[in-house]
């Protein structure tokens, strides 16, 4: 778990004075669950999309410190768009995104990464022509030197990466590439990791392994915000879940509660 001294040379450390995340002040339009006493990411009334096409409408979302949150929902609900919007990769159309004490609503990804927020996109998430080790080094590009501790930690967590460190990333299997992409994001020891469908395209036996790895990362103190197609498994494992439909919040509750909610089961989890 990082302390406050994560790479912050380029951090526009605005509003560092007064902000104390307090549960009472947050207003969630979707539900009355107020569990954000320790919120590190708060998305409020977010409207966003691509070009002129609006995908998200009034989305609210919170992630508490060290929390594990999943977003589920039907195809085209805008799940990945939430992630991309948080990371500054979409057109912002309204609302705010706050990460810890920083307003990151209109910040660019290369600046956001300095704040302790990591993002693992869904597809093509490794540099195929670079070696495994070089991929990890790129993860720590914003630091002066490659942090040896983080590198060792990543190798400990994903032993296969250490074994294959001189191999070109493009030659790895899908699961190994996914691990490499996560490892690269972990090089900066982020406070919060955004994972976009980490189990996509993996063989069934690897899916469980992938979820175990994510549990381990979360147990080590990194908060997780994850989009998953594999909704049941994701809800079973997470602390809290959001159901997104048509770019709007539909349900929000503890993962297991959503999993057992007859309405959610029938509408979104296939009965």
């Amino acid at each position: 778990m990082t302390d406050e001294s994560t790479p912050s040379d380029a951090t526009p450390d605005a509003a560092s004075s007064g902000f104390e995340p307090d549960g009472g002040a947050t207003t969630s339009a979707a539900t009355d669950v107020t569990l954000y006493e320790d919120s590190i990411l708060s998305v409020r009334d977010l409207d966003a999309g691509y070009g002129d096409l609006q995908i998200l409408t009034d989305v609210d979302m919170d992630v508490n410190d060290e929390e594990y949150v999943t977003i589920v929902g039907p195809n085209g609900a805008g799940k990945s768009t939430v992630m991309k919007s948080v990371f500054g990769l979409t057109s912002h159309m309204g609302g705010t995104v706050q990460f810890e004490t920083n307003d990151i609503t209109t910040m660019r990804p290369e600046d956001i990464i300095h704040l302790g927020l990591g993002y693992v996109p869904q597809n093509d998430n490794v540099f195929g022509t670079l070696t495994v080790r070089e991929n990890l080094e790129m993860g720590a590009y914003i630091l002066e030197d490659v942090p040896q501790d983080s590198l060792n930690e990543v190798f400990e967590r994903f032993p296969i990466l250490e074994e294959r460190q001189t191999q070109k990333a493009g030659t790895l299997s899908g699961g190994q590439q996914q691990m490499l992409a996560m490892g690269r994001a972990l090089m900066l020891d982020p406070e919060l990791l955004l994972l976009d469908e980490p189990s996509a395209g993996l063989a069934p036996d690897l899916v469980a392994e992938m979820f175990d790895k994510i549990d381990e990362i979360n147990d080590a103190g990194t908060a997780i915000l994850m989009v998953e197609q594999n909704a049941k498994e994701a809800l079973r494992r997470c602390d809290r879940g959001y159901v997104l439909v048509d770019g709007k919040n539909r349900y929000e509750d503890e993962g297991t509660t959503l999993l057992n909610d007859p309405q959610v089961r029938q509408d979104f989890l296939g009965g």
């Binding site: 990371f87 990769l89 660019r108 990804p109 290369e110 990464i113 300095h114 993002y119 996109p121 093509d124 998430n125 490794v126 540099f127 195929g128 022509t129 670079l130 790129m138 993860g139 590009y141 914003i142 690269r184 900066l188």
Partner: peptide
Amino acid sequence: DDESLARITGI
């Protein structure tokens, strides 16, 4: 190799 991934990585 991949410009948008490079940007996400903080390059």
